[in-house]
Write a protein that binds this DNA or RNA. Structure first.
Lengths: 204, 204
DNA sequence: ATTCTATTGTATCAATTCGTGACAATAATA
DNA sequence: TATTATTGTCACGAATTGATACAATAGAAT
């Protein structure tokens, strides 16, 4: 997200209301920004350094939006951020900017603009968390369509882990994990054998 | 911890001051309760359901401590808990109760008293987190002395995972992980071959 | 000193898993 | 009908793991 009339970029976020479930607040934010509902959100870390909030950028943002910093003093105070990620297919979503921002859009994780505060560290921590024990996490994510081919699954792994994987070994491993259900074949490729479709089994 | 004149048990915790680093607040709490310093603390989850705070037990605690609930209204409000665990040897520590509590002591994890709020769930989540990728975590913990035998290491694993492990396989696996440094033998056992002492290599 | 006993460090071997290459079975196209 | 690219699976050696065996102790008991 880029704030109005600034070149300050930030991860989308929001505040938790006084009597709101933390998880509800996160779902609310996701819904407002993306329209998405019923997405598995994974909480990965809570960032609470006292000096991570710098009042200056926030004051600039308020001023550039015609808001008096005195009236919104609470926004300049120190706050703690509980961070979540979700796995979705970015092609399914056009994120919407909020009242304070010009744009809200997708960036490749290796080509992020400079982010305010400790938001770059937040992205790093998210990636690191995601890469541990990916097997179980992809199943809960919404990155793949309900039914997908083995190749699509492998590409998801490769994108997240940023490595190439061996086709046969990958296939064998995935099948042996016993997480996948095999369905009908998918006939819409090219001049070659049609792949099976798979889905994740429902959680036990 | 058991609060004065109640039979309300809780995990030890505290509040983060307005301009205090979150991690500092946790270290402060640990220090007050145990005297321990320089302990690796692992943040594992942030609990933020709006209904997890029940004002009643808190009011009772205040009343039984001769404190007027009106004066401490903020303690009755909803709050969010960022939870941490540490791996230490409980024999090294006699925990100290705070002003509000009668006792603060160790309980076997499978024989906990009934805990207030969602504290039982917090314990479960801590255990679950700890059990994932234990290898790297034990090295950062303070559960074992600086030098320990292979048997002690295995007992630590077995205690945490709550399973029996095969001695020879365990030893081979530990050595192949390349995390241990071998030192002199420990001569103070019984009528049998003396075991080597090991320590964790310093982090790369 | 000598024998005995329990524990420890390795070796061994089978069972299992993994990396790698090969190959037959397709779908669409030419 | 031949061609082409991709897919599912097999096959085989390499590496890892489970399980058993055994020699090397350190101290205690004779």
């Amino acid at each position: 997200m880029e704030y109005h009339n600034t070149s300050v970029f930030a991860l989308p976020g929001g505040f938790v209301q006084k009597n709101e479930h933390l998880n509800d607040a996160v779902r609310r934010g996701l819904k407002e920004r993306t329209g998405l509902d019923n997405i598995h959100l994974e909480q990965f870390y809570t960032f609470g350094d006292a000096d991570r909030n710098n009042a200056e950028p926030m004051r600039t943002i308020l001023l550039n939006n015609g808001l008096a910093p005195e009236k919104y003093a609470w926004m300049l105070e120190r706050f703690i951020s509980v961070a979540y990620y979700a796995l979705i297919n970015y092609k399914d979503v056009v994120p919407q900017p909020d009242a304070l921002s010009d744009s809200c859009r997708w960036y490749p994780v290796n080509a992020l603009p400079p982010l305010m505060m400790d938001h770059t560290r937040i992205v790093e921590k998210a990636l690191q968390t995601l890469r541990d024990n990916l097997d179980r996490k992809l199943a809960r994510g919404n990155m793949l369509p309900p039914k997908f081919t083995m190749k699509e699954l492998q590409q998801a792994y490769e994108a997240i882990l940023d490595t190439k994987l061996l086709r046969t070994t990958f296939q064998r491993r995935m099948l042996s994990l016993n997480l996948l259900e095999r369905h009908e074949k998918q006939f819409l490729g090219g001049a070659h054998k049609a792949p099976y479709l798979y889905s994740f089994k429902v959680e036990k």
